[in-house]
Simulated assay, not measured.
Amino acid sequence: MPPSLEQLLSIVRNYWPSNEDHYLRGEASPENERLDALWNQELKKMDRWWALLHDLEGALPEFTIGDATATINASFRCVAYSGKKAPHRFAVVGCASILAPVFAVYGLEFSETEETRTVSRTCFDPLPAHMQGPAGLIARKIEANFGFDELPRELADTPVPLFVEWKKPPDTTLFHALFASVPESVP
């Protein structure tokens, strides 16, 4: 069972500022410094994350698996790109928060040329049918490897009065604070 909404709000307030004063001055806030310190600890445990990615490569051989972790966010993120022969070009992204024992999985639909890949839609629950199989597998692997619970969508959509990198109130949600401020941004 994931932490309660109250517990999650208490956690994210410790790592994201409630005003943008520090951003405007080009300084790190005390919250950002705590997030940086937590990342320094978590990055020492990367072997477990690399093992998950290796496991996904074996479990999803028709996908290209990559790491989409960015330490400006608060989660490890993996991405599984559909093969070029798939009828729809898409990716499934799995996120494991470093702030709380929760994860999320979502999808991206995109168009691709030789030079660029453009995300046309970010998909959350319910995912389109062609994303459900790989999303379910990624969710099970994160749950098994980390012991995390999936964050219910209704909690993920909860607005938070915090400044999370590129998001600011009233557009910031618990999803942004726990996982990624720009979910469509993947390598």
Rank of each mutant, 00 (worst) to 15 (best):
E154F: 14
R48N: 08
N19Q: 05
D157V: 09
H22N: 13
F110V: 07
P3G: 11
R34C: 00
V79I: 13
G147H: 08
W39N: 10
L178R: 00
N32F: 13
L9K: 15
G26K: 02
W50N: 08
I142C: 03
N14R: 15
A100S: 11
P3H: 08
W16Y: 08
V105S: 04
S181E: 10
A129M: 11
D21G: 11
F76P: 06
C95E: 04
V182Y: 03
D125L: 05
V164K: 01
D21V: 11
F146D: 06
E20P: 09
M46L: 14
L151D: 13
P169S: 07
P169T: 05
Y15Q: 08
R153I: 13
W49L: 06
A80W: 00
T158C: 12
P30S: 05
P2A: 15
A96N: 06
L155H: 13
P30M: 06
G94E: 00
E109T: 12
A74T: 04
G147T: 05
G133V: 09
G58N: 11
A180M: 05
F146Q: 05
Y15A: 12
A104C: 09
T122I: 15
P2D: 08
C78P: 03
L5M: 10
E184R: 11
V164E: 03
A177L: 03
F90T: 00
V79N: 01
T158E: 15
H22G: 06
E150M: 14
K168H: 10
E154H: 14
Q41V: 13
H176L: 03
D157I: 07
L53H: 03
E57Y: 00
L137W: 00
E109C: 06
L127S: 04
K44R: 14
A28V: 03
G26W: 09
F163I: 06
L38A: 02
P183D: 00
Q41H: 11
L174W: 03
M131A: 10
C123W: 15
P161N: 08
L108F: 02
N32Q: 15
L8Y: 07
A129Y: 13
P159K: 09
L60I: 04
A104S: 14
L137D: 06
D157E: 15
D36R: 12
S82T: 04
T118P: 00
P2K: 04
D125M: 05
F110S: 12
A28E: 12
A177N: 01
R121C: 12
L35E: 02
P183R: 01
M46S: 15
E150W: 07
L151R: 09
E112T: 01
T173V: 00
L43E: 05
R13M: 12
A51R: 07
A74H: 04
T113G: 07
F163E: 02
L127Q: 04
K168Q: 13
V164Q: 02
S181I: 03
E62L: 13
E109V: 10
L35W: 08
E154S: 14
R77E: 10
L35A: 03
P126T: 10
L56N: 01
Y81C: 00
L155S: 12
W16G: 06
